[in-house]
């Protein structure tokens, strides 16, 4: 069941005019069963069978209204959508205000699979409906279909609406080369050694058993004096200034942005600092959730 004029607007209240209801295939089957029971009841002169037949007819009539009541008067609105990545299922917040109990409500965005049926008590609810945005930028999820077949599955009542709020979609995360600025010796982009954790001489890192080729100056004399054996101190070079990420030249912009998206995500996961340089926009190095979101948003809206 998917036709009818879609509703527009920020918030929409489902009413007689905007709700469509038709029997499902099971509903028609049910009616056929009712007729069969009627025939058997008349033929056998059986009161029980006749009553069951009338009961099924009565349930059919009742279900028409009960199904309709599930959506009657329900108000739909958009929440503030949190950003998500293109290509992944992204939750889109739909606010539902139910005047009464709404049962078996299924929401479906665009061409996605319908969600599991929900039973909503009276009051306000914010539901997350998944959809898969095709590209980055400010995206609208398309047509929202609300439908229910509860309580008996005899009727399908539905309505359609275009939610107004746009959702910020980051570029899809795809591993690939990015350009690292401000790292003088970045040999192979994509190697995990971006913070240049090479052995060096600046920062103490660890102890290791002493090898003959190690310099005596690296020997942990204090430990040796305590009788704990020969250890060599290992040092690290001070990491360079945090890298500035930029689109890899020579790649189409969209693909380069996708690589950047993945890189920012993985740097954040490892707790590293990074900056971002985009055409017309530069974000200084930093870290943290907010910094990450700022960088990703810049990617999403980059032209």
């Amino acid at each position: 069941m998917d036709f009818g004029r879609p509703q527009q607007g920020e918030r929409v209240r489902l009413q007689m005019r905007s709700l469509y209801i038709l029997p499902t295939r099971f509903g028609w089957l049910w009616l056929a069963g009712t007729v069969l029971m009627q025939v058997v009841g008349i033929q056998m002169q059986s009161n029980g069978t006749l009553l069951l037949s009338f009961l099924m007819l009565s349930l059919f009539l009742l279900a028409l209204h009960l199904t309709h009541f599930n959506l009657q008067g329900v108000e739909l609105g958009c929440g503030a959508p949190a950003p998500g990545f293109a290509g992944d299922p992204v939750p889109y917040p739909i606010q539902v205000r139910c005047p009464g109990r709404s049962e078996g409500v299924r929401l479906r965005l665009g061409g996605e699979q319908a969600g599991a049926p929900l039973s909503l008590p009276p009051g306000d609810h914010e539901l997350a409906v998944a959809w898969t945005p095709p590209g980055r930028g400010w995206q609208r999820p398309g047509l929202l279909r609300v439908q229910t077949t509860a309580p008996l599955g005899l009727f399908c009542c539905w309505s359609r609406w275009y939610p107004a709020a746009a959702q910020l979609i980051y570029p899809a995360r795809r591993a690939g080369p990015v350009r690292l600025l401000a790292v003088a010796t970045a040999p192979v982009a994509g190697a995990p050694s971006v913070a240049s954790r090479h052995d060096g001489s600046e920062d103490w890192r660890d102890l290791a058993p002493h090898r003959p080729q190690d310099s005596p100056s690296r020997l942990a004399w204090k430990l040796l004096a305590q009788g704990r054996g020969e250890y060599a101190k290992r040092f690290l070079d001070r990491p360079e200034a945090p890298p500035l990420l930029a689109p890899e030249p020579g790649l189409p912009l969209e693909q380069a942005l996708e690589h950047l998206s993945e890189r920012i995500w993985s740097y954040h996961g490892r707790g590293l600092s990074y900056g971002l340089v985009l055409p017309g926009q530069t974000i200084a190095a930093g870290r943290g959730v907010l910094h990450r979101d700022q960088c990703l948003a810049a990617l999403a809206t980059c032209r």
Binding site: I42, N47, L51, F54, L55, S58, L59, L62, L152
Partner: peptide, 21 residues
């Protein structure tokens, strides 16, 4: 639901004329 459907069914059952087999 059954109890809600019963009055309608009873009305039909009691009042609708019976057909012969």
């Amino acid at each position: 639901v059954l109890l809600a459907a019963l009055p309608i069914a009873l009305v039909l059952f009691l009042l609708l004329p019976r057909l012969t087999p």
